[in-house]
């Protein structure tokens, strides 16, 4: 493996999103903070408690996770897709760079962006409602594996997509609804059957609840179950992304 190439590709990806930070960092920060102000601060004062914690705190991990899911996906998918379209992917394809370096560099940079936005959202929330992290270990576990999983999914989507419309399907028609239905704003215990059971088929439920356990110590599912679902998802997309990159799928004709 070429460490110089890996470092260069990783830094190139970090610089790419840093150069357009208004769009890649500030915009999701503002959007997510607005959700927090409307649902957490304004409505939350009326809703009082869910699962034994004040509502204004209950929504924080959900919102942090929702933006991290979106931002890590968007970072890899738009970067890889754009270089496919404008032809600069050639620079990487002719270089002594294997699937491993590509995965590490793209996923690493996407995780950095997602974690920066997630941390900023958390800090905004703390300025309204201070609470200590319940468990730093679970918080880190879910942050790392969820952002990595979504970044890998973003790579797969970028490889598969042939036009911008294809790419827009995921964040708008898959990730956003699944995050909302995955309990960002509510506990699925509030749902009647069959919706409670149906909700458990949604992998994003485990991502949201995993981080909620790390932040607050409460969740609809145990952190071990959530961790299992997240790990399996991670391994599945890691295997798929590596296989596609190795085969040159939609990259090397």
């Amino acid at each position: 493996m070429s460490t110089i190439a890996l470092k260069t590709l990783f830094l190139k990806e970090v610089r790419r999103f840093s150069k357009v930070w208004l769009q890649t960092v500030l915009s999701p920060l503002v959007t997510t903070s607005l959700y927090f102000l409307v649902f957490g601060v304004a409505l939350g004062s009326r809703l009082r408690e869910i699962s034994g914690v004040p509502y204004i705190q209950f929504v924080v991990p959900g919102l942090v996770m929702m933006t991290m899911i979106r931002d890590s996906f968007l970072n890899t998918s738009s970067s890889l897709f754009q270089s496919k379209i404008n032809g600069t992917i050639t620079d990487i394809l002719v270089a002594p760079i294997g699937a491993l370096e590509m995965v590490l560099a793209y996923v690493g940079a996407a995780m950095i962006r997602a974690i920066i936005v997630g941390t900023l959202v958390y800090l905004v929330a703390l300025s309204f409602t201070w609470f200590p992290l319940h468990d730093i270990g679970w918080t880190l576990f879910f942050t790392i594996f969820v952002t990595a999983t979504l970044a890998l999914l973003g790579m797969i989507a970028a490889l598969w997509a042939e036009k911008f419309d294809h790419l827009a399907i995921f964040p708008n028609f898959v990730l956003l609804p699944l995050a909302f239905l995955g309990g960002v704003f509510y506990s699925i215990d509030l749902l009647p059957e069959p919706w409670n059971t149906v909700s458990r088929l949604n992998p994003l439920l485990y991502m949201v609840n995993g981080l909620r356990y790390g932040f607050l110590g409460v969740a609809d599912v145990s952190p071990v179950t959530s961790a299992g679902v997240v790990l399996v998802s991670f391994l599945v997309v890691l295997g798929a992304a590596s296989a596609l990159l190795r085969s040159g799928y939609n990259l090397r004709s």
């Binding site: 110089i4 190439a5 470092k7 260069t8 830094l11 190139k12 620079d91 270089a95």
Partner: peptide, 11 residues
């Protein structure tokens, strides 16, 4: 500079 790095040469 980036292309040097990608090719495995120290920029």
């Amino acid at each position: 500079m980036i292309q040097m790095g990608l090719m495995g040469v120290e920029p």
